[in-house]
Design a protein around this nucleic acid. Structure first.
Lengths: 350, 350
DNA sequence: GTTAGCACTCTAAATAGTTGAGTGCTAACT
DNA sequence: AGTTAGCACTCAACTATTTAGAGTGCTAAC
């Protein structure tokens, strides 16, 4: 069956209308609202074909039609016009995100909030990770007799601090010395490629602080590598409650349960380290998650440095405003990449 | 009208039953389920009195009675038996919170999660703040040519880091020197009482890094003082969706909106720096927040050091299980205070 | 003071009737 | 051959209407 221009126009009308009103739409309404120059009867015939093609469906006889996942897919892939941000949107983003804070977790938090507010959907952001993580520096700061703060800084400018407690915590100059030695072993090398012999020598060089040094190394690895404590920034979960498709409390619970499951979210956001800043869309069932089958996800990777990626996903109902969401997200991604590249620029100072 | 023993027994039956079933309860059911040795008719008479006293109310004629806020208040103040934690609960808490991590924000996050899971309500925790904040140390770690990480450590062991960007960032030894001078001015003194002259001298001593030093001081103040970026740990908001009182999506939305408002939550948790580890309860309307009028809050302060307090609040429907919640919360508070005191012990090393 | 009995009230659930939006089909029209 | 008016048909959603039952308050007897 041929998908002629008229069919496409009708499909588009159904989709844009449903995105706006969340109500099934019938032939008569289409004829009245969208001037396609054909009668309701003709539209009915075409709709019948569209349904046969699986692009739209009927909740029940005597209801209008709504787009199917497949219909959205066609729309998103072939028909959707990318649109510019409005002045207001640009303005909002500019005010909402103060990039000069310079600290990744703040930026991420702000970005999540801004996207959630602007789109009125839910935003999830994962902090940047990298297959090959290179430590830039560890700074040990004495806290008290038994504890030290380890500030761990990676090449991609992530800063994390962890308190280390040990009975053999070194003090004063000795701490500085050990610190320097640890850095000399660990710095600028991929974590996987750290020289075992160097580590061994490090440990024998400071026999009285063996436990402490081991602990520092352990913590450094754990902090950097573990996806278990991969940070996740979520914002605007409650927005979803406003959509009629989730006014059934059971559905709402299902989604909130899903949004609480870090692992699930990470899976959904995917882990392809695609360096192009392309925006990807998963519609309804395509993500294979029962709880999210009424949701779509618009997602993209942002880049920090050369090998480090984080992910941003915007989650809304399947009838979400793809056009707006895509343009907002890609605009944000461009901004972030730009900023992160800037931060990277001052990076060759050692 | 006298509140004799029998009336109290009936009130208690109504409250415990309603807490469990969320359904109005009538005289016949009370007579059957709770062996008070009196007939439904007598119970009816007593209930009529209880209603007149404002302790219970009727959703409509021909429905049973439910407790009023005032009724809960009487129950909570005078009748509720404190109960021990069950073995399981103790076990759960022990496993859920690994205090040896030693870092306050992890502990808080874990605590919030644990409380939310154990009680099935929503938990909100504010990080510790102190009226008089004393800085313990600032450690500046060079990041690149234009930026430095400032790790700010307060006397109560809160560790925060902020990236500072400036065009006159000092390098190497000079950074260390400036760092030491800043510490000598700022350390161990209440923020409000820092010697202005010292600061002035500090600035003139390093004229080339004026902007940088100013920025460091500004950031230090801001990080420590601002309640604007007071951290808030929330967990289990979605739990509330499970309760029939919030199955109306509008009510659910209202509460979620409230839970998203940091300022409101901070107000609700209160700011009395009561040092006793007493648990306080706000029932329904008592908190004067329209959005939370169907909720109760069980809250308490935890203590870090001598002058620093944080707050934990557990938010549930007014018919929440006060007895369990109070015992769980006070047990947690004891644990935290204990741990935080431990962390404090190693503190007199300088 | 307590309780059985009973008339009364009012919600919640079940049932039936009505409306209207929307369809698919047929036959007539370009 | 494609388009459209006309019409019978379907079905959710709304509105009464009825029924059932849980619970009350009152009265009179115990």
């Amino acid at each position: 069956m041929l998908l002629n221009d008229r069919k496409l126009k009708i499909l588009e009308a159904i989709i844009t209308d449903y995105i706006e009103n969340a109500e099934p739409i019938g032939s008569r309404t289409i004829a009245k609202k969208y001037n396609l120059g054909i009668s309701p009867a003709t539209i009915r015939n075409e709709m019948s074909d569209l349904e046969e093609l699986g692009l739209i469906e009927q909740p029940h006889t005597s209801a209008g039609r709504i787009p199917s996942d497949k219909g959205y897919r066609l729309y998103v892939d072939n028909m959707m016009r990318s649109r510019e941000l409005t002045g207001e949107e640009t303005e909002f983003l500019k005010n909402a995100i103060s990039f000069n804070v310079g600290q990744i977790d703040y930026i991420m938090q702000q970005t999540a909030r801004a996207l959630a507010m602007l789109t009125n959907y839910t935003t999830v952001i994962t902090e940047p990770t990298s297959k090959k993580t290179v430590l830039k520096k560890i700074q040990l700061v004495s806290l008290d007799e038994q504890s030290v703060v380890a500030v761990i800084i990676t090449e991609d400018k992530t800063v994390k601090n962890t308190v280390i407690r040990s009975t053999d915590v070194p003090e004063g100059d000795r701490l500085t010395k050990i610190n320097a030695r640890i850095n000399s072993v660990i710095t600028g090398v991929e974590l996987e490629a750290i020289d075992k012999d160097n580590v061994a020598r490090l440990l024998t060089d400071f026999p009285e602080n063996r436990a402490f040094v081991t602990e520092v190394l352990k913590v450094a690895f754990k902090t950097v590598k573990s996806s278990e404590n991969l940070r996740l920034y979520t914002s605007g979960a409650k927005n979803l409650l406003g959509f009629p498709e989730f006014s059934d409390i059971e559905k709402a619970k299902g989604i909130f349960r899903a949004l609480d499951e870090k692992d699930l979210l990470i899976t959904v956001l995917g882990d392809d380290n695609d360096s192009r800043d392309s925006v990807k869309i998963q519609i309804g069932d395509e993500n294979n998650m029962e709880e999210l089958k009424n949701c779509s996800i618009v997602k993209a990777n942002y880049k920090v440095g050369n090998s480090s990626f984080g992910r941003i996903g915007i989650i809304g109902p399947t009838r979400m405003n793809y056009s707006q969401t895509v343009s907002v997200l890609s605009s944000i991604i461009r901004r972030i990449n730009h900023i992160m590249a800037d931060m990277e620029d001052g990076d060759n100072d050692e």
